[in-house]
Design a protein around this nucleic acid. Structure first.
Length: 475
RNA sequence: GCCCUCAUCGUCCAGCGGUCCAGGACAUCGGCCUUUCACGCCGGUGACCGGGGUUCGAAUCCCCGUGAGGGCGCCA
């Protein structure tokens, strides 16, 4: 049962590439708003750019959205009462509306090629005019030899006056008279333009709130004029600021940090991703920074979205990812690290599954120094591969002999667990006359081949008694 | 050129007329913890773009300037 005042929002990407962080944040704000209000979150595919739209992109877009845990209630794959949800499948609807607009005298055919319009535009600019079209200059192209022989573009007759609306984030926006001229509704290839399709779809899909990037702020003028011409009530608008790259320019593919898939592949936690993204422009009422989806949903509101453009700070994202890596359940982290470990060749997939409980310990022992899962293999390699050459020349014979003695002590440890190993250390070090620092470091070197790593006790425990003794046998 | 928007620490945010010599987070610097690297903890440095108003009182409201972003496509 759908009530008239139920909130309905949509995320409407064009399937011309992967989901980038800007799009993901827009989707997130829509999603959170819908869930907070108990409304519906709709996915609409804006594939009217035939050149660049592909099903493959569409699929990847959906994968990314789902990976971030944003499930939609209506969309091309799940259906819904207001479909189809792909613009390329809604052509009849656009044509109907265009016909209506033409009957109202608010749209007209233009038999000109895109090149001719382009030239018209250049001429206007060259002669010192603003590039604004009107019916008179456009219908000159409608010569008898063209009518019926070529497919016309349909232009909208823009009623030149002041338009205004109340933006939920920015307040009252006023577009002064004289800002634009007539513009295209339907291209000569039979497909609608963005501004037209957007209005038609939002109307018929009963969208109540349009939350989108502020690169669409100026477009709102055109859309408002179309709503008015049709006698339709426009939805409420909320324009979110652009995300900027570290150079202060709009974040784009050129910044090559923007793909959600890329982050997933490098071992980012979706929890960290949305947590970072939600903070880019929105703030928790109590100033909390770390929060899960449920909390975001509970606390989300449009009036806490900031109007200023936000610079994308990958460093903070990385920190936050590290935070989640060391605070999420170790088994979850291990499961997610699987592909990286298998790919590095330390374990085959079946081995990983068989030794899962052990691998959890391996991963847990290194995770607090990790910010991306992809860093894990290089940190855990010593568990699988014994150090090739160990240079102990910095340590004297006293250290080496005490290590040999310790090796014999370890052989006697029956319970190979933290407690047992700790006791062995304590007992042995009580009487051994070595600098502990040297003793520990030399042992670490023998066992791992490195000077840094997890706590030594953990290394011993996880490596296992046999392997520890084997590595120490080199002494 | 025209139109729209934005403007608090290096970065993201808080602040919605007095409680602000401006608060939090990341980064940075110092210290502590520690057998290493990290993690963690404690502390420091660090900002209201400029100028006019309004007001008893402005980071907060208004105007101008400046800077930045976006739009002006038969892209979205």
């Amino acid at each position: 049962m759908i009530h008239l005042d139920d909130v309905r929002v949509r995320f409407a990407p064009s399937p011309t590439g992967y989901l980038h962080v800007g799009g993901a944040r827009t989707a997130l704000f829509n999603f959170l708003f819908a869930r907070n209000k108990g409304g519906r979150f709709i996915l609409r595919i804006e594939d009217t750019d035939l050149e660049r739209s592909t099903r493959e992109h569409e699929r990847r877009l959906m994968d990314s959205l789902r990976w971030l845990k944003m499930e939609w209630d209506e969309g091309p794959d799940v259906g819904g009462d207001y479909g189809p949800y792909r613009q390329s499948e809604r052509l009849d609807i656009y044509n109907d509306v265009v016909r209506k607009l033409m009957e109202l005298g608010k749209a007209y055919e233009v038999y000109a090629t895109p090149e001719e319009i382009e030239k018209l535009r250049e001429d206007l600019i060259r002669s010192g005019n603003l590039p604004r079209y009107n019916r008179d200059m456009l219908t000159k192209f409608n010569t008898p030899d063209r009518i019926g022989r070529m497919r016309p573009a349909i232009f909208f007759e823009f009623e030149d006056k002041e338009y205004e609306f109340d933006d939920l984030i920015r307040g009252k926006i006023t577009f002064r008279k004289g800002a634009i001229g007539d513009f295209v509704l339907m291209r000569s290839n039979g497909l609608p333009t963005y501004n037209f399709a957007c209005v038609v779809d939002d109307h018929f899909m009963k969208i109540t709130h349009v939350i989108r990037g502020d690169d669409h702020l100026s477009n709102t003028l055109r859309q408002l004029a179309i709503y008015e011409a049709l006698g339709w009530n426009p939805p409420k608008f909320a324009h979110v600021s652009t995300i900027l790259g570290s150079d202060g320019k709009k974040l784009s593919k050129r910044h090559n940090v923007s793909s959600i898939e890329g982050y997933r592949d490098r071992g980012y936690m979706p929890e960290a991703m949305i947590n970072y993204l939600v903070l880019l422009g929105w703030s928790h009422p109590e100033g909390k920074e770390i929060m899960d989806l449920d909390e975001m949903i509970e606390k989300f509101s449009l009036d806490r979205i900031s109007a200023n453009p936000a610079m994308y700070d990958e460093g903070k994202l990385k920190w936050m990812n590290g935070y989640y890596i060391r605070n999420l359940d170790p088994r979850t982290i291990t499961e997610r690290a699987k592909k990286f470990i298998v790919k590095a060749g330390y374990l085959r997939e079946e081995e990983f599954d068989e030794k899962f409980e052990w691998v959890v310990k391996v991963v847990e022992s290194v995770r607090n120094g990790v910010n991306e899962l992809s860093e894990i293999p290089s940190k855990i390699d010593f568990y699988f591969i014994p150090p090739k050459m160990v240079d102990l020349s910095d340590y004297g014979e006293d250290v080496l002999s005490s290590l040999r003695g310790f090796r014999e002590e370890l052989k006697k440890v029956m319970e190979w667990n933290e407690e047992g190993i700790r006791t062995a250390f304590k007992e042995y070090l009580k009487k051994a006359k070595v600098k502990r620092r040297d003793f520990y470091m030399a042992l670490r070197l023998i066992l791992t081949g490195r000077t840094e790593g997890p706590e030594l006790l953990t290394v011993l425990e996880v490596l296992g008694k046999d392997e520890v003794l084997r590595r120490m046998s080199l002494l």
